[in-house]
Structures are given as C-alpha cells and as structure tokens.
Design a protein around this nucleic acid. Structure first.
Lengths: 171, 171
DNA sequence: CGAAAATTTGACATGACTCAACTGGAGTGG
DNA sequence: CCACTCCAGTTGAGTCATGTCAAATTTTCG
C-alpha cells in the first residue's frame, strides 16, 4: 500500500516542486539532493523560509492542509530525487495505518518546535548569534547552500552576513 | 472517558501554570481568562512567546513532547479557569479516540502554520507593520494585555511600540 | 576562455534600542 | 479621603546594528 502511493521523481536544479499560486498537492521525501522554499515580498525580495536536504519531507503544509494557493515556491537547489505522494494519498495512509498517523503527528510536532525555536532566535538574537547558532546546528548546510541563501534564511542581508563571517573568522 | 480525564482548575492572576525548569505535565483548555507564555534571556529580558485567551489550548508542546524541562513560564494574566488534563491522559485519549487524534493533529498543524506566519513577519517586516498586522488580526488582545506585553510578543521594545502607535494614530 | 553568479567592501542612511526622566492612573493602607 | 507606591505609558537624546546601494573582486561552470 505504501509503495503504491509513492513514485520516484527527479527534479533538475532550478526546477520547481511547487510554485506560488498553486495548491500544494504533493508531499515528497528527499532521497538525494537539496531544495529551498521561499517567498517573494512586495519589494521583490526573496525570503528563504526553509531548506531541505536528504531525509527531509518537503511540502507546503499550510497550503496542503488548508487547500489554499501557496504563497511559496519550492525549487530544487541541486538535482534532486524524491519519493512523491499526493497529499490525498498521504492522508489515506495516515488514516489507514496507525504507525503512519503516529509519524505524521511527530512530524507536525517537530516542525512546530523547530519553527518556534527559529522564531525565538529571530526575535531576540543578533545577526552574528543567529549565524553562529545556525552554523553549529547545521554545518552541512553551509556547504550545500550559498551564503546569500543562508542570509535570507536567517533574515539578514548577504552584505551583513559577509561582514559577520569576517568578524567570526578572526576569533 | 473524556470528562474523567479533565478537571476544572482556577488560577489566580500572576500565578503560574508552568514554571521554567519543570517538565510540562499538563495541558489546559481555557474556559475564562487570559495567560501568557514567556521566557527570560541571559540579560533578564522577558520575551513573550504566546498569548492565550478563552477557547485556546495551553501547554509547552516542546517540553510535553520531548519530556525535557521547559524553558518557559506560563502565567495567568487574569484570573483564569481552565479544564486541565495530564499530558499522559491526553495522550491516552488521542490513541483511544480517533476524533481526538484528528483534533490533536489539526491543533499541531495550526500551531505550526501560525508559528510560520509569525516567523515571516518577524524576519521581514518593520515594527510598525508587525503591530498593525497584529492589531488587525487580534483586536481583542489589545484590550486584554498591556502594551509592554504586546511589544515583547512582537519582538520590539515598549518604547518603540509607543512611538509606533503615536504614528499610526495620526493616520 | 568568458559569462553569470556569488562574495566582499566602502560610504552612508536609518530604524530600533538604551537609558533616564516624567506623567498619569490604579490600588492600598492609615 | 488623602498620601503613597506601583505599574504602565510617553518622550527625548544619543548610540548602534543593520540595511541600502554601487562598485570591485572572486568563484563557478558551461
């Protein structure tokens, strides 16, 4: 039943898994590759909302749950292979298989906890602290994504991040 | 079974539902009153993480899920009445009653979506925009909580919020 | 090799913070 | 009912972190 619900999909670098305005109809599990979720504000500035690599689940939960058009884009940052299921199929698995239900709940809880943690950082720490904390927690992300993406994920400009790194290198 | 799991509890203004360092063993549903969840940073500054009023569920999800000591305090801001269950009892209800499981999942998802939304605001909008958006979305909170609490919830100082309000009143 | 993408750097502008002082209630006790 | 204190909010002056913009430099990759 599970294998019937998923199919392997390859997305080339710079191609989209989800585009702004579409309802998120799929959920993916990354086997190989890296992706980013971002939104574009009124001033055409991109804000990176999430970064994903191997073993992460990708989807816009808000759109998938509420069935509303997404305000995000999710693009492959590297050539990526993922196992993809429709949101409906995933829902079906959750109602049929108790273990899946448990997993889904754990996923939701972890997402929330992570988001809450990020919010704490955004609201109370300096650019430098945010960067060093991020670097400590996700050292591998630093290799996979360029600095200006990391900067936008941390809510600072690439210029500021560049200066921050120069500072921290001295130490 | 449900009624057996909950009991009514009254908490007076300024009393704690949860204190920093304790594992969150209870979850509450507010019948009447208002509460706030906050943490204290190294510089002894309080950061309001969440505000709750009637019909909201209260708990520190992170502590309850991970069984780790909480880094937050949850205090009654007004005299409050809530229906309280132990985290364990709640868990039991979730595994036994499918409707409860569904509800729990929806709660988790909504929390995540709300947190994500707040994160977006914190990372990309000015103090003024954050305030006006908050005021538009939760006008009733403005009456229930004093300005310095709202300011700390928005991640700005009370001084800045005071100035922001003066500006927006002119318009 | 050459073009595009990413990073660094400087000069400058500005939003928000800090700190301290002041004002005005709201509650409390004599 | 007044005096007193506590808490919330306002305001001004000065400072600082971060943003903005443009240019120079380096790296990546077809």
């Amino acid at each position: 039943m599970i294998t019937a619900s998923f199919r392997l999909r390859k997305i080339r670098k710079k191609q989209y898994f989800l585009q702004e305005g579409d309802v998120c109809e799929y959920i993916g599990f990354i086997m190989q590759g890296a992706m980013r979720q971002y939104r574009v504000d009124e001033k055409d500035t991109e804000h990176t909302v999430n970064l994903f690599i191997e073993d992460w689940w990708v989807s816009d939960r808000e759109s998938a749950v509420m069935l509303t058009p997404s305000s995000y884009n999710i693009e492959a940052w590297e050539d990526t292979e993922l196992l993809v299921a429709t949101t409906a199929a995933m829902q079906e698995l959750i109602t049929r298989i108790p273990a899946f239900a448990k997993m889904a709940r754990v996923m939701d809880q972890r997402s929330f906890i992570a988001s809450q943690k990020r919010l704490n950082f955004a609201l109370s720490y300096s650019a430098e602290k945010r960067y060093t904390a991020f670097a400590a927690e996700h050292p591998n992300f630093l290799q996979r994504f360029p600095q200006h993406i990391i900067a936008s994920y941390l809510g600072i400009t690439k210029d500021t991040l560049s200066r921050v790194r120069k500072q921290t290198l001295k130490k």
